[in-house]
Nucleic acid binder design. Structure first.
Lengths: 215, 215
DNA sequence: ACCTGAACACCGTTCAAGT
DNA sequence: ACCTGAACACCGTTCAAGT
């Protein structure tokens, strides 16, 4: 009997498997043992290729952020470009909340992060901001993007029906508040409406309007 | 020999101890076993008062966010009120970064979170927004606040000298990028300038300007 | 060179038993 | 009523041993 020849592990294969694991079963499903199972390898074999779990997550982070600046027409409307890049970053962070930790700990993650920063700063300069204000705008949009991803991450893992159910439960909670919470009761029905991504884009566009008032 | 009479555990005492544990040794030092040690009690005794770890963190979160809406003159300038409340929320999250996780998982945390939501929504309604737009504005400022806290948390834990050193290292990294990163090199010297809190306030004010264009 | 498998030092949590 | 302590089902990681 000839057994199937398994190619040796590689950093690339491990990163692929990690992303698959997170994608299918949610971020909390990622453990080294489960990763080993998926790779049909002992869990500890991964340690030959990555020093530890955080180094692996780092590599995953760079992979996921890698697509954020791909194939973008850098001469289009600057607002739209910023929205697209940030939406992609948010999407990548949503896939993997652990990623937010890597992002916050050491900004210059790797190539992907530099490319994102360059793209955003470029657009802010194109929009006519001074370098100083471009830097501020960059910090602002990144903060909003990371915050949106952080907040939405848990709900994002649910399937659509469960998600809507949870949003409804939250609306109900605000609607049921006692007397002194007049504003909450009045607004309750409008909270968590639409997709989280739409809310993010709306927020980002408003932020950009504050940065460069629309003419 | 009369042994010292230990008062029975209470939710309050457990929350106090948890905050102490996090405050002194960093958030990763918090485990149920260590909490038990600090309380001079078996780790599992806590389970009589809290269903599980996440419920305990929930209560801790509410305690820390409790001060965010205290003593605020709700008839002042609405922008300033929003900035103050959000700054306090950010400050609370910064002190205890792992709290951001509890915040994101289940918005209706408890009393403190309802009070914050009410205060913010109230101000947005005062500013003339429709309930629908007030809800959007609320989501926006919370996302920015959580994002700012998430990003700044790691650096915030450093002492000022180390912090400036790290910011300088990041500026240097961007300044040293190769040819095609023109925008990054041009803006590098302006990145991470001023205090993180000032950057946050600047971002928040710009967001508010986008929400309600200044007259 | 690359992987295995036992082992270590932890986790959160349950539950019968104690007082 | 409240807490203990053993136990369970996990973790990430190390390291000698295998091939």
């Amino acid at each position: 009997v000839t057994s199937a020849v398994r190619p040796p592990l590689s950093r690339t294969a491990i990163v692929d498997a990690t992303i698959e694991l997170i994608g299918t079963s949610g971020p909390e499903a990622f453990t080294m043992r489960r990763l080993g199972d998926l790779l049909h390898v002992d869990a500890t074999a991964v340690y030959r290729h990555f020093r530890d779990k955080s180094e692996l997550l780092h590599a995953v982070g760079d992979r996921l952020l890698g697509g954020a600046t791909e194939g973008i027409d850098l001469d289009g409307d600057w607002r739209s470009i910023v929205v697209t890049v940030c939406s992609r970053v948010r999407e990548a962070l949503l896939q993997h909340p652990h990623l937010a930790a890597s992002v916050r700990d050491a900004p210059p993650l790797a190539d992907a992060e530099f490319a994102i920063t360059e793209a955003l700063l470029q657009q802010f300069l194109r929009a006519g901001l001074t370098p100083r204000n471009a830097a501020l705008a960059y910090h602002s949009v990144i903060e909003l993007t990371v915050g949106s991803a952080t907040i939405d991450a848990a709900v994002h893992a649910l399937d659509p029906a469960e998600r809507q159910q949870r949003y409804q439960a939250w609306r109900d909670a605000y609607a049921a508040l006692p007397g002194r919470f007049t504003a909450s009761r009045r607004v309750a029905t409008h909270l968590y409406r639409g997709s989280a991504n739409d809310r993010f884009v709306a927020a980002l566009r408003q932020l950009l309007d504050g940065v460069v008032p629309p003419s």
